[in-house]
Amino acid sequence: MELGGVLAYLVSFAIMASIYAVFSLGLNIQWGYTGLFNIGIAGFFCIGAYTSALITSPMPRGIYAQYVKQLFGLNLPFPFGLLGAALVCGLVALLIGIPTLRLREDYLAIATIGIAETFRLIFNNERWLANGPRGLMGLPQPLQGLVPSEYYNYLYLAIVFSIMWVIYWAIERAIRSPWGRVLKAIREDEVSAAMSGKDVFWFKMQSLVFGSMIMGVGGALYAHYTKAISPDVFTPLYGTFIIWVMLMAGGSGNNRGAILGAFLVWGIWIGTKFLTDLLPYTMKARAPYIRFLIVGVLLEVILIYRPQGLLGEEKKVSRFIEE
């Protein structure tokens, strides 16, 4: 395989891994720092992707209007798509959080499953919203004309990578602030935190909202990379479970762990493809299931033998203490 091909492959690997890293970082705020068991990541993935898609696409006109139905199309540039995705996800998180955040952790989990499923069903069945099961295609990409199309992915990688690091940096700053310490206190011992006068509900809500906004950005980045989205992309497997495996593998409560876990598990995922490529022809159709089985077993192994992940939790959350 020639160098150009290998590089291109690595670049697309890095783009997907970075996008998943963004999700992982968002989940880390919710779970790693606040203990919110969010199994509905796919829902925010979906909403973020669709929102950005709708904001950045034009309304279909003429002959296209017969094939593509969508609620709106603002044809705005990429940053508006990202912003819109974040804001809408944040709003949805706020609305969801109001009835569910006071629930016990496992009830919250089932509620998040329900939310993700409901959104997927809505997007799949309500054609007027975003073209139903066919989804949206031909999504624009930022700075499209800047480089020749065969090198575009390098540009996109740069964009995604920068956004990922900006998010990382922002979270790291936030975690080391008094706000972050309260979150940690809530996760360690909610009762004591409540008794020292902190409004636990409101802190949890902020964590849910910020985490979801970041996931929304991830969804938007995904949409503009693949240029086409449809409801069957945002399944519990690709859109939720794999991100949990990433965070648990890397180390929940650790932002570097979140990023590392994303790259590692995405690497394992891609790696399993090489394994299943060796399968006989008759088994090829089953390849994705075998690959996911491996990922599922990986999670179980992590939970039993190394629940703290590779990097473990960050111990110190004060910028006044030398690390």
Partner: peptide, 19 residues
Amino acid sequence: SSAVMLAMSALGASFIVRM
């Protein structure tokens, strides 16, 4: 392990069974 970890393990088990 906490109830949440057990639930997470069950989630993994559900995917394993389905796969």
